[in-house]
Design a protein around this nucleic acid. Structure first.
Lengths: 180, 180
DNA sequence: CTGAATTTTCAGTAATTTCTGAAAATTATA
DNA sequence: TATAATTTTCAGAAATTACTGAAAATTCAG
């Protein structure tokens, strides 16, 4: 499989961004190819398109599966496994939100809780625990809020995101809206 | 400067999470020390607390400055530079949001726009551009919405995050109100 | 079952990133 | 403005992460 120049350049860009997105270069490139190609792809095709080894593709696919970013398909009469990305980009965004929360927030929440139940051994510890408390409360809020978004339909999410500067106004009107 | 066991264990955790947060281990550890310590710290103190070289601290501080995560202070009668973290964790969160948007979204938005103005050279390109359009619109929405959050006061942000499941209800109420 | 097709694993290697010490640059006091 | 204190830079070393090819494991048609 050969990529068109258009896809090629985006694939390279996704590769460069991969590491910033918590993946890595190959994973970024692999996902770009899968997203930008209409037909389901098998490992050999990905390997050829990106010029990387078959085993590297295997490891990458494993990782993309663990992120729930790809869907496995079978093509009648072919024993190979084929992969596609969800059709709805909102689904993809939600999945990324879920997974990043799991990886970037949840472990720290646990760690912060552990620190909060320790007995402070000095005045430094008392101060540290204050800050830990603040961080914990903030992260917990973000985490539960993110859980909220994860359970919204794509349509509702779109509504929310389109609000733009209307958001502030709605917050002001919140009490009225909820008849409080 | 020696860390208490309480701080020590959180510093290690922040180090482990550092790379997942788009920083790296040392940067995560450095920031933990600065956040958890009440007094402003100088480079030598950080170097000693984390057992890393002075030059490494210098590079780390440079990076933390570029993220706008630390504030420089001077202590009368001392030529060294001292650093603290913002007192308000909400400020820190907002800064992280701003910077991650800049690093993780903006470059890709540019790249997607470039791809959209290209002339498609085949039917594959036509499909790819559809998906690129979807990604672009989604990312643009997220980006502008994130800009919205960045300009909110901490108080308003807290209100928004505390809404929890109320969020859906408010969106519904809004639609009713506007007779949609 | 058998064995060919396919996928996965993994030890070793390659590439990348991070860290250090020494030297250069900057800062500010006397 | 000379010099001592401090910070920054950077080439090479160390550590980490990613990649490969070969072998092992799995899958499935006959």
């Amino acid at each position: 499989m050969k990529l068109t120049p258009l896809s090629q350049s985006l694939v390279l860009h996704f590769g460069e961004m991969g590491s910033r997105w918590g993946l890595n270069r190959t994973l970024g490139q692999m996902y770009a190819v899968i997203v930008l190609t209409e037909a389901p792809l098998n490992a050999d095709q990905i390997s050829e398109a990106l010029q990387i080894s078959r085993s590297n593709v295997s490891m990458g696919l494993k990782e993309l599966k663990s992120w729930n970013l790809i869907k496995l398909q079978h093509i009648p009469g072919d024993r190979k496994e084929y992969f596609t990305a969800p059709e709805d980009v909102w689904e993809i965004a939600k999945t990324l939100l879920v997974e990043r929360r799991k990886r970037e927030l949840d472990p720290t929440l646990t760690s912060l809780r552990d620190a909060l139940v320790q007995e402070p051994s000095s005045s430094e510890d008392v101060y540290a625990q204050q800050r830990i408390r603040e961080m914990h409360d903030l992260m917990e809020m973000i985490s539960s809020w993110s859980g909220e978004l994860e359970n919204m339909s794509s349509g509702k999410l779109a509504t929310l995101l389109t609000l733009g500067s209307g958001l502030s106004k709605i917050l002001e009107a919140k009490d009225r809206l909820l008849n409080k």
